[in-house]
Simulated assay, not measured.
Amino acid sequence: MNFTDMMKQAAGLQQKMEEMQEKIAGLEAEGSAGAGLVKVTLNGKGYASRVTIDPSLMVEGEREVLEDLMTAAINDAKSKLEVQSQEQMKSLTQGIPMPPGMKLPF
């Protein structure tokens, strides 16, 4: 492969990477905790777009339980979002020879 071909491949990869970043930004992941009593939806950039709290948790003196469930639901959504993003990135790098251990985005 000559230098010109490598530059064309790099430019194509850059465009695919930008497209993939847009696609990832459009993803959504819902995390839940407490058997679904708390649900949090994150967008592909990791920002919360929706929170649902079961009314049974709105009890005086149970603030700590609700806080713990919110934290767990956010972390659950974040984990799911990371898996979805990784799957999208795998489709981008299929067929492209990458050095061992190298991951995109850099």
Score class of each variant (00 low, 15 high):
G46F: 01
N2H: 07
Q86S: 13
F3P: 03
E87Y: 11
S79H: 15
N43C: 05
P99F: 10
T41Y: 00
I53L: 10
Q9A: 11
P97D: 08
A73F: 01
T52C: 15
P99S: 14
E87T: 12
S56R: 15
T41P: 03
K8C: 10
P99G: 07
L42C: 02
E30Q: 12
Q9W: 07
M102C: 08
V65M: 10
Q88T: 15
M98H: 05
K16I: 03
L104D: 04
G36C: 07
L92A: 04
D68W: 12
N75S: 12
E60N: 10
P97M: 11
L81R: 00
R63N: 14
G31F: 00
V38E: 05
E87K: 12
Q86G: 13
E87Q: 12
Q21G: 06
V38M: 08
D68Q: 13
S91Q: 12
S32C: 13
A48Q: 10
S85Q: 13
L81F: 00
L37H: 13
K80C: 10
L13F: 05
T71C: 15
M58A: 14
V65F: 09
M6S: 05
Q94T: 08
A29W: 06
Y47V: 08
V51P: 01
K45Y: 03
G101F: 07
R50C: 06
G31Q: 01
P55N: 09
V83N: 11
E62N: 14
A77E: 01
P97H: 11
P105I: 02
L57C: 14
K103N: 07
K45E: 06
L27P: 03
I24P: 00
A72L: 09
K90Y: 11
E22G: 09
V51M: 01
E62M: 14
V51D: 03
E22V: 06
E30A: 13
A72I: 11
K8W: 12
T71S: 08
L13D: 00
N75Q: 15
K78M: 13
T52W: 14
N75R: 15
G34D: 10
S56G: 13
L37Y: 13
Q86F: 09
A11F: 02
A72H: 09
G101D: 05
S56Y: 11
M58W: 11
S79F: 07
V40H: 02
A29R: 04
E64R: 12
M17D: 02
A25C: 06
D5P: 06
M98E: 07
L42S: 00
V59N: 11
T4N: 12
F3G: 04
G26L: 04
S79K: 14
G46H: 03
K16E: 01
A25I: 02
Y47P: 05
K16T: 01
G26K: 05
M6G: 03
A35S: 09
T71F: 10
M70L: 09
L13N: 00
G34V: 09
K8F: 14
S85E: 12
M20N: 01
M17I: 03
L81G: 05
Y47W: 12
I24S: 01
N43H: 05
